[in-house]
């Protein structure tokens, strides 16, 4: 890797001051260090955040909402009783990230700001990889793991953070801190879709870091369901997180967010509409899955994701309602 300047910060204030242009924040390092070793990212300065005490911990409860600080390890999220009982969508997804060793190191912030796994990006061709004669390498090349939504655009990779998906479903908000102070945005507003290699996939301002994520009070039911290739040490192929509010037996409000289908966590308004005012059954859940797939435009090799999308939405909805998805 390229030599870099190392700065250790002990407060958020110090960290923000140290994060000058060309710097990268280091928490667990499970994504950053690998990118540095492969020269995908070569920061001039690395700012070590693990000694910033105000960046680690979980507070709050199910009734008032929970705040998870950005430096909190995924293993700590798994150890949280309140996350496990009130936000099973987040707990389940966290439990399926990578391996125990990586969950002991990786932080919430690092997970949300990890870089895409697209192998063209990781080989140095950028997020919008094109050949010198303008051919899109992912559109024309091996696109089995690429997006099936927003494929009219040029960003065809899939968003890598599996934790962003349940957090968006749960309506979580992110607090960012930077040279201009603090601001709070929806988690989905952390991301944008680049149109060229010079653009970032993140909607943060220069020098900003994530301070915390706040999940609102738990009212309804939530769940996640992943389809995977490997049972560990891998990212999901396709995953859905759902968060439902009920009026009696029927769904009064729904959020359905999907992983692995678009360059951002994909909020399926179609599935949300389809399940609204319905009682959750395998049939209604399956209809929601079908609705979600309606606008999909797969590339040459990833049509299989369309049927996986339907399945994971069906199963996440059934699971959230406490229905076993295999009981018709």
């Amino acid at each position: 890797m390229k030599a870099f300047e190392y700065v250790g910060a002990t407060s958020v204030d110090q960290a923000v001051k140290a994060l000058t242009p060309g710097s990268a924040p280091l928490a667990g390092g499970t994504d950053l260090i690998n990118r540095m070793k492969d020269y995908v990212t070569s920061p001039e300065r690395v700012v070590y955040l693990n000694d910033v005490k105000e960046l680690a911990g979980i507070s709050g409860d199910a009734a008032s909402g929970v705040t998870i600080l950005a430096g909190t390890r995924l293993a700590e999220i798994l150890a949280s009783e309140v996350v496990k009982s009130a936000y099973p969508a987040l707990w389940q997804t966290t439990s399926e990230v990578a391996t125990p060793q990586i969950r002991n190191m990786a932080s919430l912030g690092g997970n949300l700001f990890q870089h895409p796994r697209c192998w063209y990006y990781r080989s140095g061709f950028g997020l919008v990889p094109k050949t010198t004669d303008g051919k899109h390498m992912l559109r024309e090349g091996d696109n089995r793991y690429a997006a099936i939504f927003m494929t009219d655009g040029d960003a065809l990779y899939v968003h890598p953070s599996s934790l962003a998906v349940p957090l968006i479903a749960l309506g979580a908000k992110a607090t960012l801190v930077g040279p201009e102070g603090e601001r709070t945005v929806e988690v989905e507003e952390l991301y944008k879709v680049p149109t060229s290699n010079s653009e970032s996939p993140f909607a943060t301002k220069p020098g900003e870091i994530l301070k915390s994520v706040t999940i609102p009070a738990s009212k309804g039911k939530n769940a996640s369901y992943e389809a995977r290739h490997k049972q560990a040490h891998d990212w999901p192929l396709v995953m859905a997180s759902v968060n439902l509010t009920f009026s009696g037996e029927t769904v009064s409000d729904a959020r359905v967010v999907v992983y692995g289908v678009a360059p951002v966590p994909w909020r399926s308004k179609a599935a949300e509409e389809a399940i609204k005012d319905k009682v959750i059954t395998v049939e209604s859940a399956r209809s929601a899955g079908e609705a979600a797939a309606a606008g999909a435009k797969p590339l040459s090799m990833n049509g299989f994701k369309v049927s996986m999308l339907k399945t994971v939405i069906t199963r996440a909805l059934c699971t959230s309602a406490g229905n076993k998805y295999w009981e018709a």
């Binding site: 391996t99 796994r117 192998w119 990781r122 290739h229 490997k230 049972q231 560990a232 040490h233 891998d234």
Partner: peptide
């Protein structure tokens, strides 16, 4: 990206 089996 090249997936060898994990213990799981």
């Amino acid at each position: 990206d090249y997936a060898i089996p994990s213990a799981a």
